[in-house]
Amino acid sequence: MFEHGSLLLTGLLVGTLARAFMLKIDYRQFPSYPHSYAIHLTLGMIAALLGALAVPVLLEKEYIAITFLTIAAQQFRDVRSIERESLAEIEKTELIARGEAYIEGIAKLFEARNYLALLSSLITGLIYYYSSWYIAVLAGGITAFLLHYFMKGPVVGDIAKIEVVDITVKGNNIGIDDLIMMNIGEEEALRKWRTEGVGIRIIPVDENARATLANLGQRQAILHDLGILMGAKLDEGLQQYTPMARLDIDSSILNIIFIPLEPDRIFIKKAVERIPVLESSQHKPLKDKIGRKAAD
């Protein structure tokens, strides 16, 4: 094998495995199996190879060659826009839309994971050069794990208390407690809401959570994930059964009404708790002095 060949190979393997480890199918069913898997594994492999390649290049003092890393960065930015475009394209086929903020979050995640693969293989390569292959593999694995661990964002359960409640029906209006959320003119639809409708109150724990939950993208993401996890009785042309999320502007509590396919209240609560908080919808007024003072 040519010089540094085994270093490259080790870096490539660790980086690709790191990317594969981060590709997992969950309830969001994204990326789809097996085609998106093939795409992202291949891109991850390229990222890993570039990361591993950076080490011998530096050792040979070919500093100009480091510019190919910028090409890699460009390539990963393309990954983000490809993901964004394809998700925006299939958005029309979703009964409950993901929303632009959620799509942006997913696209960003796919870009970032390529960098993580690149960094893992870079570290593996460096350590391989200065010590032995097994320490390098171990260090690369630990890097991938740590990076993946710290990339995990908060979930709704971390920033809010969730209550599953009954919905209230007042005449033709439905809502939760005093908050009117929807006017329904059909007897049949009202009956369905009265018998099967479930209300959720998401109570923010602090001012940061209040600002985050008020974000429209975050609300749409909650509705989308809830519709997937618990199922929603909904079809095209049946707007009267559309799930709704409305803010109680006095208390900042986010109220959700929907008709679940699985009316199991314990699991509805658990489902809402594990929905991710979107990166782009996070606001932190408490990080500022004014925000903190205004909050007391």
Binding site: G171, N172, N183, I184, G185, E186, E187, E188, A189, E236, G237, Q239, Q240, T242
Partner: peptide, 28 residues
């Protein structure tokens, strides 16, 4: 009641009741 339900299905809209004996079909 029947006409409004049917119209809502046909137009992919939704029935709202204004509470004074008038129903409107709105597409959201």
């Amino acid at each position: 009641e029947e006409v409004s339900s049917l119209l809502a299905r046909l137009t992919l809209g939704m029935v709202h009741d204004l509470g004074n004996g008038i129903k409107v079909i709105i597409r959201h």
